[in-house]
Amino acid sequence: MESAETRCRLVLIVPDIADAAEQERLLGDALRGGDVASVIIPQYALGLDEFQQRAEKLVALVQNYDAAAIIAGDSRVAGRARADGLHIEGGADAVAEAVEKFSPKLIVGAGHSGDRHEALEIGEKSPDYILFGRLDGDSRAEAHPKNLELGEWWASMVEIPCIVMGGSEPASAMDVAGTWAEFVGLGRAVFSAPGGPAAMVAQVNAVLDEKAPRFEY
């Protein structure tokens, strides 16, 4: 079998779950399902102390499966939890500040790019990746057409990797792969899957192995 790194790979978005133990259990189950490039851990509405406690456990869990653990929230949490990266959603200026402060020690990823102009402004700040779509933007079955269009445009002309947020149905992963984006972000499609997260991660990887276009390096 060809390496998963030659085609679109999976990025998991940790769901907003009140019960910390259940959140950890679901993430562990997903990671056991197969190849996952990275996991983005959002702060959601958690206070700093509670997010810190959760992040420390989740980061260690993610790294145990050789995936990159990326904090979307307070940068102090990323450092204390020994995360691999930080996801920034404040626009080009916030990305520039984070790159200057944390790169290359941490992966610095950028989100919140709603159009081509803003995406290019963010790209000029040299983040390690850019995300098209919101971390909680998978309420519809399909990936948002605008995000697919932005991903296809970006992947065709910019070397910085991109993540395109998929939808709540696993089939959306192939729609993203068809744009030649390096990564597909999935949340509900994995963590709310009837057969459980592990089975869904395995299923998505199998489909990507079979049908996703291969990158040339």
Rank of each mutant, 00 (worst) to 15 (best):
D35R: 15
A92N: 07
E5W: 07
V184D: 01
A96S: 14
E22Q: 15
F51G: 09
I17G: 04
E216F: 05
L46M: 12
N147T: 11
A155I: 06
V14N: 02
G185M: 00
Q53M: 06
Q52R: 14
Y217V: 15
E22N: 10
V207G: 02
A37P: 06
K57C: 06
G111D: 02
F132Y: 03
G167Q: 05
I13Q: 02
E142G: 09
V14L: 03
D93G: 03
A143F: 06
G133I: 04
R116Q: 11
P42V: 07
E97K: 15
V190W: 02
P194E: 04
N205V: 01
A171R: 12
R140D: 12
G195R: 14
L135W: 02
A55M: 05
V39P: 05
I88E: 00
S38R: 13
G114I: 12
D209C: 00
Q43D: 04
E56A: 13
A21M: 05
L186M: 11
E118T: 14
L26Q: 09
Y44C: 09
L58F: 01
D175A: 14
V176G: 07
A96G: 13
Y65S: 12
V77Y: 01
L186P: 07
A55Q: 06
V36H: 04
V77D: 00
D16Q: 09
F102Q: 07
L186Y: 02
D138L: 02
D84E: 01
P170H: 09
F183S: 03
K146E: 10
I122Q: 07
M200F: 03
L131D: 00
Q63P: 08
V158N: 07
A155S: 14
A92L: 03
W153P: 03
S75L: 11
R54K: 15
P15F: 04
A181Y: 02
L27N: 05
W180E: 10
C162Y: 00
A69H: 03
R214I: 10
G33C: 09
C8S: 10
R188G: 08
A193Q: 03
D128N: 14
A69M: 05
S139N: 12
G90R: 09
R188A: 10
T179P: 03
A20P: 07
A173G: 11
R134N: 14
I70C: 07
S103D: 00
A171Q: 10
S75W: 13
V164E: 01
I40E: 00
G137H: 09
L46I: 06
L46A: 11
V99T: 15
R32E: 07
P15W: 02
S168T: 14
E118C: 05
L208D: 00
F102N: 10
M200V: 13
P194Q: 11
A68K: 14
L58R: 08
K105Q: 12
R9N: 06
D49H: 09
V77N: 03
T179C: 02
A67Q: 07
E149C: 00
R76Y: 05
L31N: 04
A143I: 09
L135H: 08
M200C: 06
M174I: 15
P197I: 09
D16T: 03
H117A: 15
A81E: 00
G185Q: 02
V62K: 07
G28T: 13
R134A: 14
V184T: 12
G137S: 10
V190N: 04
Q52F: 05
A199M: 08
T6L: 12
I160P: 11
P42L: 04
L150A: 02
G85R: 09
A110R: 13
V62A: 06
E97R: 14
